[in-house]
């Protein structure tokens, strides 16, 4: 089963206009978006779909306030869809849609969809840096940053779910869908990656009471830590609420910056995540400040020393 990772996440929301503003400012491109919702895509075509929570086309909601209605996984080929259908049909209803995709539910009743991936191959450079002792990352006169530089989400990276039994969840995704546990935060739960993706994780569970079941956060990969800082700073400067970060996680090594959202979950920018193969041996660490992060900063308006005792803080409309 060559599952690549999340192609899309589908939400049933209560404020289409607010979500449209949020997703657009986050850096996703609206595709056929109307007052009834639509799709917001990252540079590779992965992304987030929103509909009004009462839209009858949405999968059945969970019995909790979560707005997540479906996780859409991309796979490599139709043969992978056949293999998933054969496996999951053993004990649950699997519906084959006209386009060949599959709809079903996981062990916690989260709605899942599997499709031959719709993500486009990205051909882009990573953030380029110069460091003594290493070949120069940038050519002479090539600048590292400039006002207005692009800093857009490249691809949907991972999903984190509140689940009532992380052990049961890990077993189901490993045994039924071929996911691999890369690391474990104790007592929260495991980081998982599917077979056809070498990212440290595309899925993580946090064990919670049943009434919290739902999405905890989702993340998009950026082109590097500078893009992450630039995108997050632009969002914060416009008044969007930072929740956690910027910082750098230990497991996965990825930079992170989480923001609140009107979709009832955090949206995270991440960058520079570790890659793993099957020789990797999973580690364990406590779910603690030192277990989860190497360092943590908090955003503030730009400030500089100035002639007065308070220095100078940027105003509301200061250009980048």
């Amino acid at each position: 089963m060559n599952i690549i990772g999340p192609d899309a996440l589908v939400f049933g929301v209560d404020d289409i206009a607010a979500c449209t503003e949020y997703l657009t400012e986050f850096g996703l491109k609206p595709i056929d978006v109307t007052d009834k919702g639509g799709f917001f895509e990252a540079l590779d075509g992965t992304g987030v779909e929103i509909r009004h929570r009462d839209d009858p086309s949405l999968p059945t909601p969970l019995p909790t306030p979560t707005m997540l209605r479906q996780q859409v996984y991309g796979v490599q080929s139709t043969e992978d869809l056949d293999a998933i259908e054969t496996e999951l049909s053993k004990d649950r209803r699997v519906t084959r849609l006209a386009d060949g995709s599959l709809e079903t539910t996981d062990v916690f009743d989260f709605a899942l969809k599997f499709q031959v991936t719709k993500r486009r191959e990205l051909v882009m450079e990573a953030e380029k840096i110069n460091a003594p002792g290493a070949p120069a990352g940038r050519a002479p006169n090539e600048l590292g940053i400039y006002p207005g530089m692009p800093a857009l989400p490249r691809t949907l990276s991972h999903t984190v779910l509140f689940v009532p039994d992380q052990q049961k969840g890990a077993e189901w995704y490993v045994e039924r869908l071929g996911f691999v546990i890369t690391d474990i935060l104790v007592p929260a739960g495991p980081f998982l990656r599917p077979k056809a993706n070498d990212d440290h994780h595309t899925l993580f569970f946090i064990q919670t009471p049943e009434y919290m079941k739902g999405i905890e956060h989702l993340a998009f990969h950026m082109g590097g830590p500078t893009e992450l800082m630039v995108a997050g700073s632009r969002l914060a400067r416009k008044g969007f609420q930072s929740f956690w970060g910027p910082g750098r996680h230990k497991f996965g090594s990825n930079w992170f910056w989480y923001f609140n959202s009107p979709l009832g979950t955090h949206f995270e920018y991440d960058a520079d995540m570790d890659k793993h193969d099957d020789s990797w041996v999973a580690r364990q660490a406590p779910m603690s400040p030192q277990g989860t992060q190497m360092f943590l900063f908090e955003w503030r308006k730009r400030w500089s020393p100035g002639p007065g005792p308070e220095g100078i803080t940027e105003g509301e409309d200061t250009p980048e």
């Binding site: 209560d14 008044g239 609420q241 609140n260």
Partner: peptide, 24 residues
């Protein structure tokens, strides 16, 4: 933890409840 999704935005879509936009 802070609850707005954007400056001054603390309500759900229907305007019936104060909402934490961290997890809804």
């Amino acid at each position: 933890t802070p609850m707005a999704w954007k400056k001054n935005e603390y309500l759900n879509g229907a305007g019936t409840h104060l909402t934490c936009h961290a997890h809804g």
